[in-house]
Amino acid sequence: MFRKLQSLDEEVTVYVDGVAVPAEANESVAAVLLRQSPVWARTAPVSCSRRAPYCMMGVCFDCLATVDGIASTQTCLTPVRDGMLVLRQKGRRSVRP
């Protein structure tokens, strides 16, 4: 859906649902999700419909995903780090031990 204007500066690798994808250090996780296909970050807790980053500034909470094991992370406010594990969040998160 989106593409980088230039080749990646300081390339790192993150894993989106287990798939290795290239990213740029310090860009937001949401920006990386928007370069994947299909684009979505989570499913809504009521209807389970797909949601994608919408506002990119921490207002809408539709870009929530599980980042390095922490569910409901606002990916638009979370900078990418090498080796980061990103899981799209499906419905209500679980905290069952």
Binding site: P45, S72, G91, R92, R93, S94, V95, R96
Partner: peptide, 11 residues
């Protein structure tokens, strides 16, 4: 006082 969290799967 009361705290409410986000929705979570049955716990």
């Amino acid at each position: 006082m009361m705290i409410v969290t986000e929705r979570v799967a049955p716990l």
